[in-house]
């Protein structure tokens, strides 16, 4: 549905050239929620500005529903922008307009008749659960309600893609989950493609089907949530399923392995399996088990008795779909 191809953005800052985006390619199919995570300075904001064509990319293309948005003439640019509905971190509602008038704004621009606007706006507000707040001003709404209005406004022109730029970063945990639930509901109901740009791993866990890690203007890891977690040494996996901070190092006592697996791939109880197959005792140093989407995921750090042939254990586990990383120890 949305295809980004080799997107590059180079700024000139004084005498220096700054490469903000260094060949970003991405393909999100219809009806999927894709997360793009990265630290500040990774190029997230530049990516958003290039996707909405607020900034022209230096090279590369953005295609939505078969229509290339980049390289269109200025007059067509405004129509192209309507294919992407955008949700902002701080909602960016117009304070001088009521909730209903905010949602009506994009419809006014394309000259939709007043009566039609009225029904459409009422439907949209009902959809985001704000039917009763049509005549309230943004200042009278809570942060979560404002974000709902922002979402309704972004959906007004029936876009193909909903682009959310840090949609929950200014919200408390409970409101965050409510907004993410709403996004998922809208995806199911409207079969819209969603792109969420965020620095919060929680958002990815809660809402995304797939995820990309953006670093220094490049996508360094990419894949479906289950896929990413089952990749040995994946940094995304380590941050998605972090081990408790005070994990004992267990150094000097025996080989330490980090195991990452999901319920689907690893159907057998892993610890018992190692014990039975190799006849050794396994000590669990730390662990994190979570339900992400529809699947169970586990991240365990285990220690084998000193002198165990860790390579053989590793080999065996890889064979049944467990991602293994050796953490040292002898």
């Amino acid at each position: 549905m949305i295809t980004i191809k080799d997107l590059r953005k180079v700024y000139r800052q004084g005498g220096d050239t700054v490469v903000a985006l260094d060949g970003v390619s991405l393909d999100v199919p219809t009806g999927k929620i894709h997360g793009i995570v990265g630290h500040s300075g990774a190029g997230k904001s530049t990516l958003v500005r290039c996707l909405t064509l607020l900034d022209r990319p230096t090279s590369g293309t953005v295609t939505v529903n078969g229509q290339e948005l980049t390289n269109v003439s200025d007059s067509k640019l405004r129509d192209a922008r309507r294919r992407i509905g955008m949700v902002f971190q701080h909602a960016n509602l117009f304070d001088s307009r009521t909730t209903a008038q905010n949602v009506a704004y994009p419809l006014e621009l394309i000259g939709v008749p007043k009566a039609e606007i009225k029904t459409k706006v009422a439907d949209l507000l009902e959809l985001v659960g704000l039917g009763k707040f049509a005549n309230a001003y943004p200042s009278q709404l809570s942060g979560g309600q404002r974000q709902r209005v922002g979402i309704a406004r972004a959906l007004a022109t029936d876009p193909d893609v909903l682009l959310c730029d840090e949609p929950t970063s200014a919200l408390d945990p409970q409101t965050t989950d409510e907004i993410l639930e709403l996004v998922k509901k809208l995806r199911d109901r409207l079969e819209i493609t969603v792109l969420i740009i965020t620095h919060e791993m929680h958002v990815v866990k809660q809402a995304c089907d797939s995820v990309s890690l953006l670093e220094a203007g490049r996508i360094v890891e990419h894949g479906e949530l289950g896929e990413v977690i089952n990749t040995a040494g994946s940094r995304l996996a380590a941050t998605l399923l972090p081990l408790p901070g005070d994990t004992p190092s267990g150094e000097g006592r025996g080989p330490i392995l980090d195991l990452l697996y999901s319920g689907e791939q690893a159907t057998e109880p892993i610890i018992s399996l190692i014990t039975r197959t190799f006849g050794i005792d396994v000590n669990v140093l730390a662990g994190s088990v979570e339900q992400l989407g529809e699947q169970q995921f586990a991240h365990l750090r285990v220690q084998l008795p000193a002198g165990t042939d860790a390579a053989a254990v590793r080999e065996h586990l890889l064979g049944i779909g467990v991602a293994v990383t050796e953490k040292g120890g002898k």
């Binding site: 607020l54 922008r81 309507r82 509602l93 704004y105 994009p106 621009l109 394309i110």
Partner: peptide, 17 residues
Amino acid sequence: SSGKVDAALVMGSTRMQ
């Protein structure tokens, strides 16, 4: 705020709008 202007532009407003 520039965010409001960005929002208006993203929704397809002309500069006059």
